[in-house]
Design a protein around this nucleic acid. Structure first.
Lengths: 205, 205, 205, 205
DNA sequence: GATGAATGAGCGTTCATTCAT
DNA sequence: CATGAATGAACGCTCATTCAT
């Protein structure tokens, strides 16, 4: 590897790293204060630079949100696709999907919070069409799984499938709003408990 | 009762009715677009008047949010207090609370959505201290109930109580974001299904 | 005419009048300082209001430029079309067109200056496509007239027509940059002298 | 000449050449987009370097404009002074001045366009006082020439001298906005035609 | 000579709010 | 009660400029 090549890589890598740093900061602030209510100056303050300086790295406030959300969704779908490719039974697939979801919350908490709070509003712009598409695919995936589970006798047949879908979806993702990495419970422990509740109910038998 | 008195009451009643109308409109728009992203003009447009005219009825955009949220919370607590006063067993109390919660969603859907999306942000101002207080009381009420339920043998003892609390809280309230009055399922039917899931789990036994 | 009708008309008229006032001010400032170099606050200062207040009347800085230029061009073409409809000989048509042009300069001086200085730059946006179209029609009209004049024996045949076109076009319109309504010479007097020069040359015979 | 001396000269010459290159690029961009509307980055892009790098060569955007305009004006006045020193008759002086002017347009087209479009605006700063002074001298020179021409019987006496001055000035310089070096007509041919028009008029006798 | 990250003033624009009518 | 013109603070963003490397 020539020194020039190494330099170029070093520069590009440093740049990417800085972007990632700034995006992590921005995601944190957006998640805490809300995207619309957060000013670009607040993000910059949190990053220790001036408002205008953010525009050296990003085109716009919107493009920060875009990059934060798409990075998260890409990783989420990669994880989901691995689970689906494993071709497990309905119950085990559900278990694995919930576990992966909590893993995403663990690694992308601010992005998940943003997704919860802002996607409905952001999705109206053409730039965020992928949010709508992701939501559609997500619903499709879960509905298919739940229907299969009922067919296979793994899940109760007396429940409204669409309602169960929303029940699980909301239950899992809203956890991002209160989950704290490094808190009393790990993401895996929370996933385990959630699965116990969702599968078995909270009632003593 | 003198004619003057009656007039004054008529005027005051008309005024209150107009306020309520405007607040219902505002809540709808705030819930749809998000409080921060909604302009006063959008609220006024939806009400068929001009932006400035809202200020005859309300001090500020914030005071609209205040009135919307406090009206909802007051009614919610009145309903909860009636349930608690009935002194039922843990399981029946839980059932009644969930039913009442879905009733609130039915009657105050936009306010509940606002509460979900904005309360964290709004609660930072002193004017909205009651949001924090309500959240505290809510948690206290549910934790007490769940602990009692475990003690009484109504609920499973192997679950993390704090997690169950959040599980139920989120499950119930997030429903406001998709619930449509007059849709396929009534609020009561949704409540019933939710209770079936929460109590019994989705797994076929 | 009902009082309501009269009121509505009065309001609409007052509004249109205010717009016209503000546009006249804006045109003056744009012409003096240059469109790009003029800030919205400078326009507002000249109008005695605050920067933001302009946006009650206009969508954007660009829409002010648009309205100023299109108003001027519409009137100019109306005048030109009247001349062309009169079906005069080439010499008299040229005389009448030059006279009307100076009339436009007299009534729309700042707009003409803006057109001179900014149209090339503004015309790149789709909103100002009419500037390009007007320029095309203008050239076509003049070229046709000059060719006819040569054919009819009214104008010299030894000159490059395209050059004569530019000669006249520039000569006439650039006058807007120094013409002062109410100055030593009226627009009509300037037109007369210009015609004498253009038609007869400055050389003593 | 010592090697050191030769190196220094070589360096200084190379530096001056790079400056001239960059100024030519800058003038082109300023003329095309307008000085105020052109960003330093656009100039740098056109030169194939980064925005900040221009500041190694120039103090500021303004100093680029300064150097472009003063270089042009210095050369123009050198040419004019040569003409005036020849002590020709009024008609021949006018002919020579117009020819030299078109020569300037040929060699300094972007600078002339900038001068046309921006000098009024730039001249307000003290740094560009020479623009005002040049304009004054220019007017003085032409007015003196025209008055002499009328006295000598070379030019018509029935025209307003001040108007004739502006007529010629505008006619000549505005040509820079459409002249293309290497186009259908050379600068000398355009000058010839312009002189034919200005001196003899466009009318057939 | 040139880079690239940052600065900071200022821009066009928005919007909650006021108030004379 | 409502209008509509205006306010003024703040916003997202731009850009001439600086400077360590």
């Amino acid at each position: 590897m020539s020194p020039r090549r190494r330099d170029a890589e070093g520069t590009a890598a440093a740049r990417a790293e800085r972007r990632a740093e700034l995006l992590a900061t921005a995601a944190e602030v957006f998640a805490t204060r809300g995207y619309a209510a957060t000013t670009v100056r607040e993000v910059a303050d949190a990053a220790g630079i001036l408002g205008g300086s953010l525009y050296y790295h990003f085109d716009s406030k919107e493009s920060m949100a875009d990059e934060i959300l798409s990075t998260f969704l890409n990783e989420m779908w990669a994880a989901y696709d691995r689970v689906l490719a494993a071709d497990l039974g309905a119950r085990d697939t559900l278990t694995a999907l919930v576990a992966e979801s909590f893993g995403c919350i663990d690694r992308h908490r601010p992005a998940v919070v943003m997704y919860q709070n802002e996607s409905r509003h952001l999705a109206t712009g053409p730039r965020f069409a992928y949010l709508t598409e992701s939501r559609r695919r997500f619903e499709e995936m879960w509905m298919t799984l739940l229907e299969r589970g009922v067919r296979e006798g793994a899940f109760r047949a007396d429940l409204d499938i669409a309602l169960v879908y929303r029940f699980i979806r909301d239950t899992v993702w809203v956890a991002a709003t209160w989950y704290q990495p490094g808190g009393r419970l790990t993401a895996a422990q929370i996933a385990e408990q959630y699965l116990a509740m969702v599968l078995g109910g909270i009632q003593h038998e």
